[in-house]
Design a protein around this nucleic acid. Structure first.
Length: 266
DNA sequence: AATATACGCAACCGCAAGGCC
DNA sequence: AGGCCTTGCGGTTGCGTATAT
């Protein structure tokens, strides 16, 4: 199939529409309709391709377009429909009179997706159990991570350290230790991972909730970022999910000891 | 006040489906 | 049956504006 030459090669205009172009398009469609989008711009005297004209009409100039912000009801409808239809924006738009697929797609990407993420990540203070370090046996360390605010505190039996105190170490790190997937940024790379939710009892972790996404790249990133070598703690290349769960505490222990130890926190 | 960064939205691009010849 | 054309869709881009530094 031979593709039609693009607009620029045809000497046609691209980019934002001017009020005058809008006026011409609306006036033409009002008088003659839009039976053939390809022929329309030439007949109307517009230096645009048919595709551009169609998009402008469908998404902006159509008289039945609803203007203004989406209502709470509309947003809820989009979320519900998206659950069942996925990214089928036109199908979703069909259920929302006056709203276009493009507009719904934009709202989804700019507002609703974030809102859903926030809802799914309800504030969760994870007070997990005392981590006893073999190296610092006298110190018992616990992490408190708020998955919503990304606030992290680190406490020993003597002190509680706020995330600000070691935020310089974790400059690129979003958050740690939740039962849901978080993104940890190590250097320029993003690593999605799922930490086990650690319960209140000492040292155990929630194997049911843990679907390990920890990869060798993740550990490489950590090593690059923090300058540590975790290979002596565990070998990610041989780590299956079960062993990850088992090794979860070791991971945290080593991370905190290394980070905290170097900073003199412990 | 100037500059950098983030955000929102309109518009574009490429592909696929379906109709027509 | 197969090629061409048009339309529709979803992903992506880029510009203008708002906010932060």
């Amino acid at each position: 199939m031979v593709r039609a030459p693009c607009c620029e090669k045809m000497g046609l205009k691209k980019g934002p529409w001017t009020p005058e172009e809008d006026r011409i398009l609306v006036s033409y469609i009002h008088n003659y309709g839009h039976a053939n989008w390809r022929a329309l711009p030439k007949q109307a005297g517009l230096l645009r391709c048919g595709k551009s004209c169609r998009l402008r009409w469908i998404n902006y100039l159509r008289p039945d377009i609803k203007r203004g912000n989406f209502t709470k009801e509309e947003e809820d409808t989009i979320i519900t429909l998206h659950e069942s239809l996925g990214n089928r924006w036109s199908a979703i738009a069909a259920q929302l009179p006056g709203r276009t697929d493009n507009e719904i797609k934009n709202v989804w990407h700019t507002h609703l997706k974030k809102r859903l993420l926030k809802q799914n990540h309800t504030p969760q203070i994870i007070k997990h159990s005392m981590i006893t370090s073999p190296q610092y046996e006298q110190e018992q360390v616990s992490i408190n991570a708020d998955s919503e605010s990304s606030n992290i505190t680190l406490s020993t039996h003597n002190n509680i350290y706020s995330c600000e105190q070691y935020s310089s170490l974790l400059t690129d790190t979003t958050t740690v230790a939740t039962s849901s997937t978080e993104t940890i940024k190590c250097g320029s790379l993003d690593y999605a991972m799922n930490f086990p939710l650690m319960d209140e009892s000492c040292g155990s972790s929630d194997a049911e909730n843990s679907s390990s996404m920890m990869t060798a790249e993740f550990f490489d990133g950590l090593q690059d970022h923090f300058g540590f070598n975790y290979s002596n703690v565990m070998d990610p290349s041989h780590m299956n999910e079960a062993s990850y769960v088992d090794d979860g505490m070791d991971f945290w222990r080593s991370l905190l000891i290394d980070v905290g130890g170097i900073q003199g926190f412990l």
